[in-house]
């Protein structure tokens, strides 16, 4: 039995008076890629954004229930958001590199989390190369690290957005439809890269592309109208769904 990286218990969430999540229970296994599927508005992005509490930026979000990451309750009073978000990295729908150089982007997170610790330039170079190697970007950008990250192609930007999470050694990576802004070829490259990261990181990925969930995830969870409907190994869920709603969605009868 694999270790559990993320576990929610009876998670309810409201945006103002609108309830977006209803008693969501999910256990995400460590080191695996778990995809969240479901029609638009089913709460999959909301669930994802609750794990690192980035939802709270909105200011009118209320939750009940618990979310544990690596066994720690993220809503506990003593939890510092900065530490949580170091542990739980996030990749967004649209690539959002910061308007800094490629190098500074990769080091951004590391710099804000290392406090006053002195890190030599050579050590930083190692971090940068290592992170960019992991996302298969090093060879393309190694000669232009001081270039602005916003000048890269969308595919390269999204790879960079993954790379900048790695120097702080997160245990969980959250990905919110990371390929929805990319063309098919770039999508393929991103999927290959994400597939290569499994094992080292626990990856929870939201997708509205069922084919993507099928080919690029090991576990799959189906959500509908804010409720967690069915979770299981991806192959099993797609071949023999237990619920008729899951079967209907997978076969494209709605959504």
């Amino acid at each position: 039995m694999a270790e559990i990286a993320i576990e929610t218990r009876d998670l309810n969430l409201w945006y103002g008076t609108f309830q977006a999540l209803f008693d969501v229970n999910i256990r995400v296994k460590q080191g695996m890629i778990t995809s969240l599927i479901g029609p638009s508005g089913c709460g999959k992005s909301t669930l994802l954004r609750t794990v690192n509490r980035v939802n709270e930026r909105l200011g009118y979000v209320r939750t009940t229930g618990t979310v544990d990451v690596m066994g720690e309750d993220v809503f506990a009073a003593g939890v510092e958001l900065a530490r949580l978000r170091k542990e739980v990295g996030m990749v967004f729908q649209r690539p959002n590199p910061l308007p800094l150089s490629i190098r500074d982007n990769v080091l951004f997170s590391h710099r804000i989390h290392r406090g006053n610790e002195k890190v030599s330039r050579a050590d930083e170079d190692v971090l940068v190369e290592d992170a960019l190697q992991q996302v298969l970007l090093w060879d393309d950008v190694k000669d232009r690290l001081s270039q602005r990250a916003t000048s890269l192609s969308l595919e390269e930007q999204q790879k960079l957005c993954i790379a900048r999470l790695l120097p702080v050694k997160p245990s969980v990576l959250l990905m919110d439809e990371p390929t929805s802004a990319l063309d098919p070829k770039a999508t393929e490259a991103l999927e290959a890269l994400i597939w290569g990261l499994r094992g080292s990181y626990t990856i929870l990925i939201v997708t509205h592309n069922m084919a993507q969930a099928r080919r690029a995830s090991e576990e799959c969870a189906f959500m509908l109208l804010g409720k967690m409907m069915e979770i299981g190994p991806t192959d099993a869920l797609f071949l023999s769904p237990k619920l008729s709603e899951t079967a209907d969605y997978i076969e494209g009868r709605y959504g």
Partner: peptide, 23 residues
Amino acid sequence: SYREAAEAMGATRWQVVFKVVLP
């Protein structure tokens, strides 16, 4: 999206302002 990106990496409000928004 810049602020969101920086906050999601664990930057505090002040770090977001000083390292991202002001530049």
